[in-house]
Design a binder for these strands. Structure first.
Ligand SMILES: [Mn+2]
Ligand SMILES: [Mn+2]
Ligand SMILES: [Mn+2]
Ligand SMILES: [Mn+2]
Lengths: 147, 147
DNA sequence: AAATCAATTTAGCATGGGCTAACTTTTTGC
DNA sequence: GCAAAAAGTTAGCCCATGCTAAATTGATTT
């Protein structure tokens, strides 16, 4: 029951939050490369206007973000043209898409609505460790074959 | 198996990300009020220096954040004194502590290590809808009574 | 009661990630 | 082939969240 909720040590606690801030710093990058990969599959190319629509932000915001992604080596683009993933970007996108799918499938396996699973997965995906992801994956798998 | 991952409609997708950005904007607030409540219980009061240690940030950063929280009606403080939760702050802290605990217990019920559950819960807690939280809670409950 | 030490505050700065408005370029339709 | 529409870019702004360095205040110890 452990009602007596003792706080973690200061050092552990600080490390937890440091890693959390790191995770947050990567979220937008991860969602963008994932979305760019999806758009290339679904629409043949990833245009800024599509990204803006999908994320619900202005084209100016997309432009800023794409510049950062380019600076960080995840995408390449030429003025007024569509956006491409670099090898690093594609690798990250693959990893994120897989992780996203595992989280989504897990939520569905737990019996949640598609709409809710969709929304929650979009946030949770960035905060699951490799260990947790593996547990999610196995759980979903067991549910599928189990009955 | 639904391998053909069709994207959500543009409108749904945009709404998902809008809500996600909202959730992010609340994360720091939520972690602060939760931590302030914990410190008051564990140490008798919440001092800026303790918050700085726990979050692994500088006292200057804590000061900035506390000013925002005060502006937003979640805490009250006087210069060089410790920090108090307002009613709204206490209510939010209670809600967050409960939610945090449910997520943590759920991860433990899934068989994860305490260390990992602790870290992942700190991120995931901000991204679980009421529905998902309820499913988590029931799952943990079933595991406890079930065997 | 000083002196010291710890805690807090302030000032000034940076980056990420949003926005609007104005402008340029490309694409499309006639 | 040109005009209009769509897409992309740029400039200038805002706020949140972090930082360092310096100043200030509060607490402790002799
Ligand atoms: Mn995603
Ligand atoms: Mn996401
Ligand atoms: Mn998050
Ligand atoms: Mn948290």
């Amino acid at each position: 029951m452990a009602g007596g909720a003792v706080l973690p040590t200061k050092e552990n606690h600080a490390e937890t939050f440091a890693r959390l801030r790191d995770a947050h710093a990567r979220e937008v990058t991860e969602d963008y490369v994932e979305m760019i990969a999806d758009l290339i599959v679904e629409e043949g190319e990833a245009r800024a206007v599509s990204l803006a629509e999908r994320f619900g932000v202005t084209p100016a915001t997309v432009n800023n973000t794409i510049k950062r992604l380019e600076r960080d080596g995840f995408v390449s683009s030429r003025p007024y043209r569509s956006i491409f993933l670099t090898e690093a970007g594609q690798a990250l996108a693959d990893k994120c898409r897989e992780r996203h799918q595992i989280v989504y499938d897990f939520l569905i396996a737990l019996g949640l609505d598609a709409k809710i699973a969709e929304f929650d997965a979009e946030g949770i995906e960035h905060h699951v460790s490799a260990e947790t992801l593996e547990v999610f994956r196995k759980f979903t798998e067991a549910r599928k074959t189990g009955d």
